[in-house]
Design a protein around this nucleic acid. Structure first.
Lengths: 116, 116
DNA sequence: GTTTGACTTCGAGTGCACTCTAAGGGCGAC
DNA sequence: GTCGCCCTTAGAGTGCACTCGAAGTCAAAC
């Protein structure tokens, strides 16, 4: 599929897709006869996963590391697993923090409600 | 209390405290005889709340708006309440998104576990 | 009395993650 | 054939939220 289609489906801009490829987050997207990028469904799934990692606040550098390990093949699976597990802890902590913040927000909102 | 003490207790750096004051997030901290900042407990509570707003991803510009309304007095309470309610919706949505991301992460980690 | 160290202001610099521009190529529609 | 549009690359620019540096003041420590 074209870069526009991939952009539409991934929710990223075409600029960002090229940027991700340039920094090695996506490895060598196929080109068609005109030299234009031609994304596969696999590329899309990978992008979707990358988007989740980003959404959870993983730095681009770490994502590059993960992508790189993935390209190196099966024997890097344990390290990839460790990366995800470490990240999982961070995400869970972040959710807990936000839940606390939400409580404070509710408390404040309630104060405003009682004022009026 | 001194800026160092306020930094220690708020978890922000002295640089950041000066920056927050400069952009109007904290209004006119008292100065002692030497012209040095002298933070009060109220300043600290306000900073703590600001920190929560930041932690939940409120942009600095919105925080400035909120701080500005607060300075204008009691009659801005309804608008401040609306701001917090709008923000509350965003934070709740963010938590839901992260929870989903966490599920995907767990799914992936499980795949690695089954592989080995 | 001079060195140390914390403070002041103002403005410049940093890091991250994009985001856009410039310059050029290819192709279908009119 | 030329207009419009989408694509390519490489590199520069942007926005946010800090973060730091320079230059100067002041008071206590040695």
């Amino acid at each position: 599929m074209t870069i526009q289609e991939a952009a539409r489906r991934s929710g990223l801009s075409a600029h960002t897709l090229r940027y991700y490829e340039r920094i090695g987050l996506i490895h060598s997207v196929d080109r068609d006869g005109k030299g234009h990028r031609d994304y596969t469904e696999q590329d899309l799934s990978w992008l979707e996963f990358l988007t989740r990692l980003r959404s959870t606040g993983m730095p681009i550098a770490d994502m590059c590391r993960y992508a790189d390990l993935r390209r190196q093949g099966r024997h890097t699976a344990p390290e990839r697993q460790r990366m995800l597990e470490t990240h999982r802890v961070r995400v869970a902590a972040r959710i807990a923090e936000l839940a606390q913040d939400l409580d404070v927000l509710d408390y404040k909102i309630n104060m405003y409600k009682e004022m009026s």
